[in-house]
């Protein structure tokens, strides 16, 4: 088995609500090699978000409980390492790009404040230190990397002064602050317009390629899978039903669920016919 940067092995997760237990992940395995672009696709209830939250250590226990499996990052199991070590990895070695640019930023602080704070804590966890000036320089640098034309002005702004697309780019910049090797993106741009979403996806792809990062893209949109990944895991009801190179998946899906999913996507070229004339009551 090739040494992957992130490797999830046979992960099981249960949720308990109202005294009832549900096994939401039934042995999920996936690999994210360094410098690879991986997509994890599934519909609501497939378990893709739970998988992502388990990797990032964001599952609330209870109601969730990890029933088995390992999550290796760089050869170390995240689930058995001391909490302090795990915290050190979060945001520094692996970072997360959140979905909702509106609620992921605190409205009462400027972008510079929020990014500066994140950087300060990341530095502290890694036992580094840098002055306020150096921190601001880094904030401006990263904002430039996400193609902000005027990083200083953006840094001085409050979230409400920025458009949705700009805020989403700020979230990407935040994820890049302490030079992680792995980016985990949770449906970025879904809350935005199509044209803005296209920009965000393009930016993300460019950044990942330029900086040699690994990308794990969590999404429900097969179009996004095709545009941003070269290897894809398809999830349904808590299991990975199929995983292959992205191009192959769209050309010749093997699993029935994958086939049905691809068939359900309306095509820009037309020819998707809805309705079964006369069949329905």
């Amino acid at each position: 088995m090739s040494e992957a940067l992130l490797s999830v092995r046979n992960l099981g997760v249960q949720f308990t609500t109202y005294g009832q237990t549900n096994q939401v992940l039934k042995g999920v395995s996936l690999d994210v090699p360094a410098r690879s672009q991986i997509a994890l696709v599934g519909e609501s209830g497939s378990g893709k978000t739970v998988t992502m939250r388990a990797i990032m250590g964001l599952l609330r226990t209870p109601p969730a409980r990890i029933t088995g499996g390992e999550i290796f990052y760089d050869g170390r199991d995240l689930l058995t390492m001391p909490a302090k070590d795990r915290l050190k990895l979060r945001g520094t070695a692996m970072s997360m790009v959140f979905q909702d640019p509106m609620s992921s930023l605190n409205p009462v602080f400027t972008i510079a404040d929020q990014m500066g704070t994140i950087l300060k804590y990341a530095d502290r966890r890694l036992g580094r230190s840098r002055g306020k000036k150096e921190r601001m320089a880094r904030v401006h640098e990263v904002l430039g990397q996400v193609r902000m034309r005027d990083p200083e002005r953006v840094a001085r702004s409050y979230p409400i002064m920025l458009s949705g697309g700009m805020r989403q780019r700020v979230l990407i910049a935040m994820a890049l602050l302490s030079e992680p090797q792995l980016l985990i993106a949770d449906e970025p741009g879904t809350a935005l317009d199509v044209t803005t979403q296209a920009q965000i996806l393009k930016l993300l792809k460019d950044l990942v390629e330029e900086r040699g990062l690994a990308l794990l893209m969590i999404t429900h949109n097969l179009g996004v899978v095709r545009e941003t990944s070269n290897y894809v895991y398809v999830m349904n009801k808590g299991v990975v039903v199929e995983h292959r190179p992205t191009a192959e998946l769209f050309e010749a899906p093997r699993d029935d669920y994958t086939k049905a999913l691809i068939a359900a996507v309306p095509r820009l070229t037309g020819g998707t016919s809805f309705g079964r004339a006369g069949a329905a009551a």
């Binding site: 193609r147 044209t195 979403q197 899978v225 691809i262 996507v265 820009l268 070229t269």
Partner: peptide
């Protein structure tokens, strides 16, 4: 709008208009 739609096949990709890029970015 058409250029921005994420698509799942080469035929669809072929019918999307090519939009000139500014600084490696899709223009608004």
């Amino acid at each position: 709008l058409l250029a921005s739609v994420p698509v799942i096949s080469a035929e669809e990709e072929a019918m999307r208009p090519r939009i000139p890029l500014i600084d490696g970015e899709i223009p608004t």
